[in-house]
């Protein structure tokens, strides 16, 4: 069981659904939701290493800063998250180009399609474990 998960998504229903799935499965001790990349980034920059979430579920299609912008911002301080935080893209997009693009970011450990389900959670667990080994 992971300690802390962030969900970043502007879609309120999607946020509700994802946190519901996490809670029901007992995946994490703490699930924090952010409706914009900016609010999540603020929180992350305020956190020290131990406060950082182990898992971030990131939506791509958001107003203002979107998922890609978020990833670009994090890339500048990648060291801080390396070995601690795994980012999983959780999107309704089914475009292959998005998946390919996500491979450019080292912090991204997986590309998941909405809705979040048990199968996806198993994948996150495995991938996260692998990246922290």
């Amino acid at each position: 069981m992971v300690n802390k998960v962030y969900i970043i998504d502007d879609d309120d229903i999607s946020l509700f659904l994802s946190s519901l799935v996490l809670e029901e499965s007992g995946f994490a001790a703490k699930v924090l939701t952010y409706t914009s990349a900016d609010s999540a980034l603020r929180q992350l920059s305020d956190s020290n290493h131990t406060d950082l979430p182990e898992v971030i579920l990131l939506d791509l299609n958001m107003p203002g800063k979107n998922g890609w912008d978020f990833l670009e911002t994090l890339r500048q301080c990648e060291q801080k998250f390396q070995g601690r935080t795994s980012i999983f893209i959780l999107t309704s997009s089914i475009a292959a180009s998005d998946k390919a693009r996500s491979k450019n970011y080292r912090l991204v450990q997986g590309f998941l399609h909405k809705p979040l389900d048990d199968e996806s959670l198993d994948f996150i667990r495995q991938a996260h474990r692998a990246s922290n080994r």
Binding site: L17, S92, K114, P115
Partner: peptide
């Protein structure tokens, strides 16, 4: 095409996810 697929799929994904969850709740 891209946007439409995305935006069509977003509510559909929610519908699918919610209906799955509702059965469990």
């Amino acid at each position: 095409n891209y946007i439409v697929s995305h935006n069509l799929r977003a509510p559909v994904a929610n519908l699918v996810g919610l209906s799955t969850m509702l059965q469990k709740l």
